[in-house]
Design a protein around this nucleic acid. Structure first.
Lengths: 149, 149
DNA sequence: ATAAATCCTACCAATTTAGTAATATATTTA
DNA sequence: TAAATATATTACTAAATTGGTAGGATTTAT
C-alpha cells in the first residue's frame, strides 16, 4: 500500500488551507513555509491535487490556491487517493489476474488484505478537513504559540 | 507503512503450514512449491519468521518447520510485524522526535495516521491462522481441485 | 560419508520515493 | 508594455526500499 510522506504533506497542506485560507488565496510559498516542506516539492504536490480537483487555482500574480470543495466534503481518503492512488496494499487485491499462484490459500490471504484495505479506507474516509480543523482549533485554545509537540 | 508482498508470502506460507502441516514437519521446499514462491526467497522469509519465534525448526536431514504457536494465537498482525516491522505508516508516528516541523498542524495530521495505524493493527490482529484455515476448509468443500480464483 | 535440510550473510537489479530544477504560461501592477 | 509574481508542466536525479538470487556453513538422519 501507499501511505507516503507525500500524502502526509498533502494533508498538512490542505489542513493549512482549511485553517488559514478561509476566503483568501494562499500561495504555495506560504503553504510550504507553514508546513515546513520545500516549496518546489509542495508545488508538485499541489499540482497533483489540482488535477484531482481537490484545490482550485488562480494563475498569475496575486494568484494562489483555494480548497476545491467544502471542508466537510474533503476527506483524508480523497487526499491520499489523489496522491498515492488507491488504498490497496497488495497488487493482487486490486487486480485479480495478477494472482498467478495456483495455491488456493492465496485466495484466503487475499481476503485478509481486502479486510485491511477496507479498514484503512473506512478510517481515512470518515475524517474530514472540517473535523481536523475543529480539532486543531480546540487544541490551539490557550496555547497559541507553543510549538510543542 | 509496509504491507509488502514479502509479508503476504509469509502469511501464505504460514497458512499453508496450518492447513497441510498438522503434526508433521514441512520443508521450505514443499511450502514454497505449495505457495508458488521461489524456495530461496521463502527460506529467507522463514528465517525471519524463525527469529520471531513464529515457527519452530528441526535442522538437518528430515528436518523442517512447524508452527511456533497454536494456530489460534498466530495472528496476521504478528506475521506482518515479524516481516515488515511495525504497522506504522509514517515515521513521524513512530518516533515523535522526527516531527521536525514547527507547523502545529502536523500534530493533527499525526493523529490521522495514528488512527489509520490503529485500524490496520486492529484488523490484522483479530485474524488468526485458525480462522483463516477454517475459512479455507469451508471454501474448499466440494471444490477440491478447482484452481479458480 | 553423504545427502538433506536449515542457518546465515552478502549481494544485486529494479523500482519507488523524495526532492531539485528549469522552463513555459498566465496575470497583476506600475 | 515591462517587470514581477504565481501557477503549470516536465525532466531529471540521488537515495532508499523491495524483491530476489547465490552460496557457503552447519546440523542431522541414514
Amino acid at each position: 500500500m501507499k501511505l507516503s510522506t507525500k500524502s502526509r504533506y498533502a494533508l498538512e497542506g490542505m489542513l493549512y488551507m482549511a485553517v488559514y485560507g478561509k476566503d483568501r488565496l494562499l500561495t504555495v510559498k506560504e503553504i510550504a513555509a507553514g508546513t515546513a516542506v520545500s516549496p518546489a516539492y509542495m508545488e508538485q504536490i499541489f499540482f497533483t491535487l489540482k488535477k484531482a480537483g481537490l484545490v482550485s487555482t488562480v494563475r498569475g500574480a496575486k494568484g494562489g490556491f483555494t480548497l476545491g470543495y467544502p471542508e466537510n466534503e474533503i476527506t483524508v481518503g480523497r487526499i491520499i487517493r489523489a496522491i498515492d492512488g488507491d488504498l490497496v496494499p497488495v497488487s493482487c487485491v486490486a487486480n485479480l489476474s495478477s494472482c498467478k499462484s495456483k495455491a488456493r490459500s492465496n485466495c484466503i490471504s487475499r481476503y485478509v488484505w481486502i479486510r485491511i484495505s477496507d479498514a484503512i479506507a473506512k478510517t481515512a474516509d470518515k475524517q474530514t478537513l472540517e473535523m481536523l480543523k475543529d480539532q486543531f482549533m480546540k487544541e490551539s485554545d490557550g496555547a497559541e504559540n507553543e510549538d510543542i509537540h
